[in-house]
Simulated assay, not measured.
Amino acid sequence: MTPLTDTTFDLKTYLRNQKQRVEVALDASIEAGYPETIYEAMRYSLMAGGKRLRPILCLATCELLEGTEVQAMPTACSLEMIHTMSLIHDDLPAMDNDDYRRGKLTNHKVYGEDVAILAGDGLLAYAFEYVATQTQEVAPERILRVIGDLGQAVGAAGLVGGQIVDLASEGNADVTLETLNYIHTHKTGALLKVSVTSGAVLAGADDAQVNVLSQYADRIGLAFQIVDDVLDITATSEELGKSAGKDLAAQKATYPSFWGIDESKRQAQHLVEEAKADVLNCFGNKARSLVALADFIVNRTH
């Protein structure tokens, strides 16, 4: 494995600067309009904070392939719109029934279930419109590929499919590790994966490069969920910004329920080490941001 020799890379500064750029772009992406309530509800959840990990992964991958922020930022924003939609809908009483998200009242608690559903729908539709109309300096065929990949990631072959199997598995003592992996490679992993690959496609990556980045993203996506499952047990609601212990209360299968906490942490670390090796072997030290982001995923505390 090619060693990561650049010890000057400051992840904390990198995350702060990238997040600030994303926040500015998101704030400009949706202006208030009529009917005011739907725009307010969309902006309420979109601008509620969070790590902005998916947009940052998109920007980092585009930069790795010598693309530009101008090329990637509309897609980066659309990824956060789609992610926000999934959180709004996931928090509804018909799904996980949560009152708090990112330390604030969930959308349906502020605007009602009807408006929350429509706010999620509005963000999902606008995400695709935004990529199609705002992307600059990218060949049309690349934009079309990104739109297609986004659709697959969020639909029945991705996030929606994972959520369906997740709901069907609640309270089922016979859930297998294979089923759990299916749930999370789709419900969580699919959007993380397209966050990485879309940045590469926009920058003009070849198929071999996209395949390496896809494998990297598969590994960090699964590691992300394993860490989430551990934090649901070990972190407080204040640390999480949402209700802790929800998985246990809903009788959901989790990685700690199969492996225990210590082995779950070890498995997540192993996945991250493999992901780092993937990109270092292909891109060398140019992949330092992706390496640091992989470490961030496994070491985060909220």
Rank of each mutant, 00 (worst) to 15 (best):
K193G: 11
P140R: 10
L213D: 01
A203P: 05
S198L: 02
V212R: 01
Q136G: 00
G122S: 14
Q134T: 12
D149E: 15
G171P: 07
A125T: 15
E178H: 07
N181F: 01
A132M: 14
D166A: 05
A139T: 12
L192A: 00
G148E: 14
V196T: 10
G189R: 07
A173V: 11
Q163M: 09
R142A: 14
G161C: 10
V131N: 08
G171Y: 06
N211F: 01
Q152Y: 05
D174A: 15
Q209M: 06
L191G: 04
I164V: 14
N211Q: 15
Y216W: 13
A132V: 13
S169T: 13
G162F: 11
Y130Q: 07
T176D: 09
S195I: 05
E178N: 08
G221H: 06
A168P: 00
H184G: 02
G148T: 09
V201F: 00
D218E: 15
N211M: 13
E170V: 04
G189P: 02
S198K: 04
A156D: 05
H184V: 03
D166Q: 06
Q163C: 02
L202H: 04
A157K: 15
V138C: 07
Q136H: 11
S195H: 04
A127W: 04
T135H: 11
Q136M: 12
G158P: 00
T133E: 13
A153Y: 08
A208E: 13
L167Y: 07
A127M: 09
G199F: 04
G120M: 09
A157D: 13
P140C: 11
Y126I: 05
D149Q: 15
G151K: 05
V146M: 05
G120T: 04
N172F: 12
D121V: 14
A223R: 03
T197D: 06
V210C: 04
V131A: 06
T188E: 08
A125R: 09
A203H: 11
L222I: 12
S195Y: 02
H186I: 08
H186Y: 14
A173T: 11
I183D: 03
V212Y: 03
Y126M: 14
S169M: 08
G199S: 11
V138L: 08
Y130I: 03
A168L: 15
L123Y: 10
A139H: 07
G189Q: 05
E137R: 12
A125Y: 02
Y216P: 00
V212T: 15
V160Y: 06
V212G: 06
V160S: 07
Q134M: 13
L213V: 01
I220R: 00
Q152D: 11
E137N: 14
Q134R: 15
D149Y: 02
V196W: 07
V210D: 10
Y182W: 06
A217G: 03
T135R: 05
L191K: 07
Y182Q: 14
E170T: 10
L159S: 08
